[in-house]
Amino acid sequence: MKVLLSINPEHVENIFRGVKTFEFRRKVFARKDVRTVVVYCTMPVGRIVGEFDIDTILEDAPDEIWEKTQFGSGITKDFFDQYFSERKVAYALKIGEVREYKEYIDPKEVLDNFSPPQSYMYMKEERRKLDCSDQLEFW
């Protein structure tokens, strides 16, 4: 199963360069069969730009997550602390194999009623537009 995550351009660039090896989330998917993240790069890019496999998902108190991930975080401690402010639990997706697409995809051309997800969106076949190309594999 794949999920689509909205990630800002700076972090997307760091993921594809290998600088950011963890993607942080305040909440994680309910389904346990999610193996791949489809990356939607937020505005001003506004495109699906690639994907990465999830090596593992860490769950712990924010301070513990920072200790385990700081050298692959791609962010500052201040940014991390602000993101997880008031949270008791933090999640870190350890990024596995990364695949940047040669041609970026306009999500409105492949997904019905697309709006960028606040947390995540399952890539279900039912969401695929009937007339779209097969450049984006859903499952």
Rank of each mutant, 00 (worst) to 15 (best):
35 R>T: 12
35 R>S: 14
36 T>F: 03
36 T>I: 07
37 V>A: 00
37 V>D: 05
37 V>S: 02
37 V>E: 10
37 V>R: 07
38 V>F: 07
38 V>S: 03
38 V>Q: 05
39 V>E: 06
39 V>A: 00
40 Y>S: 09
40 Y>G: 04
40 Y>D: 02
40 Y>H: 00
41 C>M: 00
41 C>I: 03
42 T>S: 02
42 T>W: 06
42 T>N: 01
42 T>R: 01
43 M>N: 14
43 M>K: 14
43 M>D: 09
43 M>E: 07
44 P>G: 15
44 P>E: 14
44 P>T: 13
45 V>K: 05
45 V>F: 01
46 G>E: 12
46 G>A: 08
47 R>C: 09
47 R>S: 03
47 R>Y: 00
47 R>F: 08
47 R>H: 12
48 I>F: 06
48 I>R: 02
49 V>Q: 02
50 G>Q: 05
50 G>F: 00
50 G>D: 00
50 G>A: 04
51 E>V: 00
51 E>L: 05
51 E>D: 09
51 E>Q: 03
53 D>A: 08
53 D>Q: 04
53 D>I: 05
54 I>T: 03
54 I>W: 02
54 I>R: 06
55 D>M: 14
55 D>I: 04
55 D>E: 13
55 D>A: 11
56 T>I: 14
56 T>G: 10
56 T>P: 13
57 I>Q: 01
57 I>T: 08
58 L>V: 02
58 L>Y: 06
60 D>E: 10
61 A>F: 08
61 A>H: 09
62 P>S: 07
62 P>V: 07
62 P>L: 08
63 D>P: 06
63 D>I: 13
63 D>L: 13
64 E>I: 12
64 E>L: 14
65 I>F: 07
65 I>R: 05
65 I>Y: 09
66 W>C: 11
66 W>Y: 12
66 W>R: 03
67 E>Y: 13
67 E>V: 10
67 E>G: 07
67 E>S: 12
68 K>M: 12
69 T>F: 04
69 T>M: 06
69 T>I: 06
69 T>P: 03
69 T>H: 11
70 Q>E: 14
70 Q>M: 14
71 F>D: 15
71 F>M: 15
72 G>R: 09
73 S>A: 07
73 S>C: 01
73 S>Q: 07
74 G>K: 08
74 G>R: 14
75 I>F: 04
75 I>P: 13
75 I>K: 13
75 I>Y: 12
75 I>G: 11
76 T>H: 12
76 T>N: 13
76 T>R: 11
76 T>F: 07
76 T>Y: 11
76 T>P: 12
76 T>E: 10
77 K>N: 08
77 K>A: 08
77 K>P: 05
78 D>H: 15
78 D>M: 14
78 D>T: 15
78 D>E: 15
79 F>L: 10
80 F>L: 05
80 F>I: 05
81 D>R: 12
81 D>T: 03
82 Q>S: 15
82 Q>L: 15
82 Q>E: 13
82 Q>M: 13
82 Q>P: 14
83 Y>W: 06
83 Y>A: 13
84 F>E: 06
84 F>T: 10
85 S>W: 13
85 S>A: 09
85 S>P: 04
86 E>V: 07
86 E>F: 10
87 R>V: 04
87 R>S: 03
